[in-house]
């Protein structure tokens, strides 16, 4: 078992499992956020539940943050180790002839997503912590939709969100499908259906987030 922990394959599993966990979280996050467009009252209700439920706040939220940190740290560890495995680079290397740009540059798309997470945490999570525990605002189950709309008034912030979601889609395009390969789930007998599902998910969920951001931004302009 100790060999397992030290092996290169274990690092792949950690990367894959933490990535899949974040995929599940993204699905849940999108499900709640889309209600801000189709049913604002439901958005308020669900957001209030997520913000004040002790299980979510003190168990699931720390697990989520741990998942992000593990995925990020392991990504950097793997990048450093992989660079060491080829200390002298090729003078000419035609990566496009055998692999996609996205698959070769996960560290860069991941870095952008991480930087975006910093902004996103500042916008919503820090605000929540301040509201609940520092300035101690009144518990108001109807405040969330307005707070969300307010964030997308600023066109710069809105387009930063949109750009980040595009890079998130690129990251997921390779990462989601790749995680099953890392975990050994794939086989020769497996058809193309599952791969197509992961690609569709990688496009649709970030596209959904883009839609939500733009919907609130342009709704504000129209108003």
């Amino acid at each position: 078992m100790s060999a397992l922990v030290k092996s290169s394959l274990a690092r792949k599993w950690v990367m894959a499992l933490s990535g899949l966990f974040l995929v599940v979280f993204l699905t849940q996050h999108f499900t709640i956020n889309i209600t801000s467009v189709i049913a604002p009252d439901t958005f308020n209700e669900w957001s209030h539940f997520m913000g004040y439920n002790p299980l979510v706040q003190f168990i699931l939220q720390p697990i989520l943050i741990a998942g992000v940190i593990v995925h990020f740290i392991m990504g950097i560890v793997l990048e450093i180790r992989n660079n060491k495995a080829r200390p002298i680079k090729y003078k000419r290397f035609d990566g496009n002839s055998n692999s996609t740009w996205v698959s070769r540059n996960m560290i860069y798309t991941g870095a952008v997503v991480l930087a975006f997470l910093g902004l996103h945490f500042y916008d919503f999570w820090i605000h929540e912590i301040d509201y609940k525990y520092i300035t101690v605002g009144v518990e108001d189950p109807t405040r969330y939709i307005e707070e969300l709309r307010e964030k997308f008034v600023d066109p710069v912030r809105t387009w930063i969100y949109v750009g980040s979601f595009v890079l998130l889609a690129l990251h997921l395009w390779h990462g989601f499908n790749s995680s099953f390969q890392s975990m050994g789930v794939k086989s020769v007998k497996q058809g193309d259906g599952f791969r197509k599902f992961t690609y569709a998910w990688a496009i649709l969920i970030p596209a959904g987030f883009v839609f939500i951001a733009l919907y609130h931004h342009f709704n504000h302009i129209a108003a």
């Binding site: 092996s7 290169s8 792949k12 992989n82 060491k84 698959s103 890392s182």
Partner: peptide
């Protein structure tokens, strides 16, 4: 074989398929 592969200093697979 995996232990030996790691000891030789090869990098990690990131599933590019190259």
């Amino acid at each position: 074989m995996v232990r030996q592969m790691d000891e030789e200093g090869f990098g990690n697979c990131s599933n590019t398929g190259a």
